[in-house]
């Protein structure tokens, strides 16, 4: 069973697109649901932290795997 409800692949996209796509995807989700985000933009690591802090959505985890950055974000 996947530990997330939706997935967003923002690979190859640069600032600010990963954030904007995540925001759009979260808008279609229910409160408490979890979004799995994949990105290749190194700047997205700090940006998703800042996004979570300012929007109230919880950044549950942030990691790197084979040159890709992955995030789990729970909608507030």
């Amino acid at each position: 069973m996947a530990d997330f409800d939706r997935e967003l692949d923002a690979s190859g996209l640069n600032c600010p697109l990963p954030i904007l796509r995540a925001k759009k995807t979260l808008a279609d989700m229910e409160s408490g649901q979890v979004l799995h985000i994949i990105a290749t933009d190194p700047g997205s690591v700090k940006d998703f932290e800042a996004f979570a802090k300012q929007t109230g959505n919880e950044l549950m985890s942030s990691g790197e795997e084979g040159g890709k950055f992955t995030f789990l974000m729970k909608k507030s």
Partner: peptide, 11 residues
């Protein structure tokens, strides 16, 4: 446009 779209996404 980058700052405005991002700001809008941040509320």
């Amino acid at each position: 446009f980058i700052l405005a779209s991002t700001a809008a996404a941040l509320g």
